[in-house]
Design a protein around this nucleic acid. Sequence first.
DNA 1: ATGGTCGCGCTGCGA
Length: 257
Amino acid sequence: MKIASFNVNSVKARLPNVLAWLGEAKPDVCLLQETKTEDHGFPRLEFEDLGYNLALHGQKTYNGVAILSKQPLDDVVRSLPGDANDTEARYIEAFTGGIRVASVYVPNGQAVGSDKFRYKLGFLARLKTHAASLVGLEEPVAIGGDFNVAPDDADVHDPAAWRDQVLCHPEERAAFRRISHLGFTDALAALAPGGHAYTWWDYRAGAWPKDHGLRIDHILLSPKAADRLKSAGVDRKARGQEKASDHAPVWCELAES
DNA sequence: ATGGTCGCGCTGCGA
């Protein structure tokens, strides 16, 4: 079973790229982030034509997450518990093909010390609480998405330049570790030790041709899922296409149960 | 080079 995660930066603007990549990579499950459209405007038919069922949680202009699966999607959850005032579309979860999967778009945080940074830390704390309730389930669990955190200096092209900046600040790295330390395996880190498995390159300043990337997209596997981990990777080629997202897709392959 | 480029949706915001 192949599970992928892809921050597409607008599913409408990226439709040809995403469809072409799905046709090549053929994931069984794909977690999308930054779809940037309300559910009624989501290009459903194009994905259904490739054999995917859809679960959507979108909003206008910003954010938006989705799950594509070749298997039926059951028990869909469309918000992260813990803050009734949080209306941003950043979380969706479902049970499909014998595994519970979640697509998460963690807030960027904008700048350390800002209100948005505090919102990010609060979101990560809520995600930890919810992940703790998932890790103890009988079913395997995969939480994938754009975490907007580079866990380690090895995940950053220039750690000195990024030190204490948003995406790399010790407080958000600690918040990420509190989640993984619940018992999750970072699939990319487990199979690409030593880093340089970047997943995001800024559109600006020629970051992509210079490979000035960060590893901020992750797939976290519960113990029952991690026991089945066979391989994982980043599809860098997608980042080099015309009209590419600023993120590359990440994926992992699990052995059949 | 303290800049740069996207997407959304029509002005500047978010990333």
